[in-house]
Amino acid sequence: MDTTTDIPRYPATRPLALAHKPLLDPLFAVLQPRVSELTFANLYLFREAHAYRLTLVEDSTVVLGQGYGGEEYFLPPLGGDVAGVLRLLLERGMTLYGADEPFAARYLAGEGVVVEEDRDAFDYLHLRKELAELPGNRFHKKKNRINYFIVRHSFSVAVYGATHREGCLALLGEWRRVRGGIDSPSLELETKAAAEALLLTDRLGLEGVVVLVEGRVAAFALGERLNRDTAVCHFEKADPFMEGVSQLVDREFNRLLFADCTYTNREQDLGEPGLRAAKLSYHPVELVKKFRARRA
């Protein structure tokens, strides 16, 4: 049952739109989020996948969404009386998603609230400098794969720009085609979001790098600043038949972009075993825990 109509002072629910960027950006700047979902670009690019809508509850802006299975949730309230608004929404049977540990400790420690970790949604947090330099024996396999690529291909690396758009879209299409037999509810949605990100990088404040092999895009990565000391990589796609290029584009993203950031957030694994193993192989310094909360 959709309980959102019971929210007090619920004047309107509006689908998330580009016009909301000037509203949300200052709120995220105050929040300084650690959770990868909490940027305007990420919410906008996955607005259809998660049916993101905005509403005003008391004096807080609230983002409403849906999981891949259709379950309703709301993200941590932005601005205003967070504790009060959170209490109102939970009392009306709604589920909170995307709370990190500091938020949970501050607002969800009271009696009568069930708080659950969502391991499949934990973000992988890395030292940016380690990803840029791959130091020591821990990253030996990554360096070997990059070297394998380097000795076999004539390539160049560039900061993403409009001249790379068509090549990146072609690579994205091939990446999707190769995964045609994979049963994943997020595959089509991620492909659509990545394509739109390539088209709207300037308007969304995204930055990226591309690897070119003989003038053709062999890999790209796009991301943005998440908070004062952390960048987030939202999309990383590579030619699935070119060994070593995915490791190279990851290194170059961290080497060329957001050099003043201490950390890089590489997002979640969605519970996919192969993706989890790949992300863990980069030796995160922390798994940023995310929690769901509801009234008992």
Rank of each mutant, 00 (worst) to 15 (best):
L171Y: 02
K129T: 12
A193H: 06
V210R: 02
F155V: 00
L275E: 03
K237S: 03
I182C: 11
A121D: 10
E207M: 11
A17R: 14
Y68C: 09
C261P: 00
L226I: 05
V232R: 04
E166K: 13
Y107P: 09
D123V: 03
L280W: 07
G112L: 07
T55E: 08
Y160D: 00
L222T: 08
L199D: 12
A218Q: 10
P135V: 02
F103V: 03
H234R: 07
E286C: 04
P11L: 05
K290I: 02
K143L: 09
E117M: 11
R138N: 10
V82C: 01
S156P: 02
Y160W: 06
T262N: 02
T39S: 13
A41D: 00
V217D: 06
F155T: 08
K21S: 08
P26Q: 06
S156A: 12
P102D: 06
A17C: 09
T3I: 07
A158G: 10
A197Q: 04
E58N: 14
E252M: 10
N147D: 13
Y107K: 10
R255K: 15
E207C: 11
G173Y: 05
L131R: 12
L172R: 12
R228C: 07
G67M: 03
G93W: 02
R225S: 02
L88Q: 14
N254W: 04
K142H: 13
Q247T: 08
A218S: 15
A19T: 14
P33L: 00
K289M: 09
F253H: 06
D239H: 09
N147K: 15
G67C: 07
